[in-house]
């Protein structure tokens, strides 16, 4: 049973690290603000959930697991709210999305 739990924790941590790295590559290489926000917003929630679940499987005491669940819930509530507020502020301030990729040479 211990090996099953440790292997599951390892898989969760690996997947979370991979998603974190893909989000980092996305924030560097995407051409537009809104696409960058997509990369960050999509990977942040799932990567955080995966890493925190991997830690939860390793936590020995109920105290630790409850704190990790609190962090996970706050991440899942806070990140979409911040993304929404950021997109709304950018849209209201007149930042236009990049619509035609062929006209722009950036990318």
């Amino acid at each position: 049973m211990d090996t099953v739990i440790s292997v599951a924790s390892l898989l969760c941590l690996l997947l979370g690290s991979f998603l974190c790295l893909s989000g980092g590559v996305g924030i560097l290489r995407f051409p537009d603000f809104y696409t960058r926000m997509h990369a960050v917003g999509v990977t942040d929630t799932l990567a955080s959930a995966m890493i925190l679940m991997g830690l939860m499987l390793q936590g020995a005491e109920a105290n630790v697991v409850i704190k990790l669940i609190i962090i996970l819930l706050m991440t899942l509530f806070i990140n979409p709210t911040a993304s929404y507020a950021l997109a709304k502020a950018a849209m209201y301030s007149g930042l236009k999305p990049l619509l035609n990729m062929q006209k722009s040479k950036r990318g």
């Binding site: 960050v40 890493i51 990140n79 950021l86």
Partner: peptide, 19 residues
């Protein structure tokens, strides 16, 4: 807004790093 987005991502990753 790119800067604000990057700072937000940095903060989220800091939470994970502390844990």
């Amino acid at each position: 807004y790119d800067r604000i987005l990057a700072v937000n991502m940095f903060g989220t990753k800091t939470v994970l790093l502390i844990a």
